[in-house]
Design a protein around this nucleic acid. Structure first.
Lengths: 208, 208
DNA sequence: AATGCTGGGCAGTACCACTATCCAATCATC
DNA sequence: GATGATTGGATAGTGGTACTGCCCAGCATT
């Protein structure tokens, strides 16, 4: 399969494929001459994955590369999961507002979760809580505890569902599940909000 | 309060405040002369809100403007919620892949939710499901139903928590809750995943 | 009067994700 | 073997977003 065929098979335009090759998101094809390279089915799969991570997951290209690196390397599962979380986080939360971090740690401790002390997700949570408080909309502690419970249930079942056999498969399963299910979860929450809000307040004339 | 004072009070640099004024994210101050304008506490609040929506919620400036428009206008609650959802959606899911849309509708019907037929969240869900299937990682229907249950519980409690009195307050509560709690929910899911995954697979040497 | 900050406007910057153009080398075809 | 299309590789350009800089005349303060 040549580039044009790869482009046709994946739906990604040739210049974009070249761009991904340059950026290291796609391994180069097997060179069969100075101006010819052969691509395989794995390149099609990889391209689809790149597009899913970028479009569904909303990850910037550099983060997609990080996630792919986890899948390719023979990383232990928990490391790969951490890397995926870091990739998802995006902004590294440069300033960690002390009150937010403290609130996040208290919440995690209250939930009984054992997590890495300085990890990105924790910083992210701290930053979000601090920003909410700073904007004048502190999260109701009761709501927060409900969120914790819901997150715990969802995550426990997700982790239970990880296949036990091959490590590489498990890594792929958990990393992609983490990244790609986020928009599904958010969309479902919004739809449920819509349903319950219509149920309680009634629907307005014409809008969604 | 003059711009520099507003900048000091909000932590937003003066040129950025000017930019927000140009873009209509911030109402102009009360002009007290040709080269002087007075800003109040509401401008500080608004600025903090803009930053929260942009940084915590990750919304592009144009979407922040849409969300703010809902808060300012005396829109009925369900309309405002829909607008907030649309603002969150971002990409309007240009091509609606038929199988994804069908899956989304089936899921919603199965959940017993009554939602607007063509609404953005539904399209978003359909696009996400289609992209996942296209990338070779279809969501496990059982997992999906668990997600639905979790989303339903969270949303029901969120809607129950909406204050009943003033409409404007309720709109603000629900719109900001929807937008700004997303990162909290996602961070909590990631932390819970980390906890359960460490619990099941053990922690690797040094990484988060 | 001198200094310094103000609002307003417009141009410029930095980054991101592509997209376009060019090139010599080659492959397939005539 | 000539010919035209295509390829990989490289470099430059595009469009969008979110600011950031700079300049200006006009006031306010000293």
């Amino acid at each position: 399969m040549l580039v044009s065929a790869l482009a046709a098979a994946s739906g990604v335009p040739v210049p974009t494929i070249k761009y991904y090759l340059r950026e290291g998101l796609l391994p180069p094809g097997r060179a069969t001459g100075a101006t010819r390279a052969e691509y395989g089915e794995e390149h099609v799969r990889r391209l689809r994955l790149v597009r899913a991570l970028a479009e569904v997951g909303g990850l910037p290209i550099a983060r997609v590369k990080d996630v792919l690196a986890c899948l390719d390397g023979a990383t232990p599962l928990t490391t790969a999961l951490g890397a995926a979380h870091d990739a998802l986080a995006g902004s590294p939360a440069p300033e960690a507002p002390a009150n937010g971090a403290a609130a996040a740690e208290a919440l995690v401790a209250d939930a009984g979760w054992r997590v890495e002390a300085g990890c990105t997700s924790l910083a992210q949570l701290g930053a979000a809580l601090a920003a909410l408080a700073g904007a004048g909309f502190p999260v109701d502690p009761v709501a927060l505890r409900r969120y914790v419970r819901a997150a715990d249930e969802v995550a426990r079942e997700e982790v239970d569902a990880i296949p036990g056999g091959d490590t590489a498969d498990a890594v792929e399963f958990v990393v992609l599940g983490t990244v790609l299910h986020e928009p599904v979860l958010l969309a479902l929450r919004r739809l449920a909000q819509q349903h319950h809000s219509v149920h309680r307040f009634g629907a307005p004339p014409g809008t969604c």
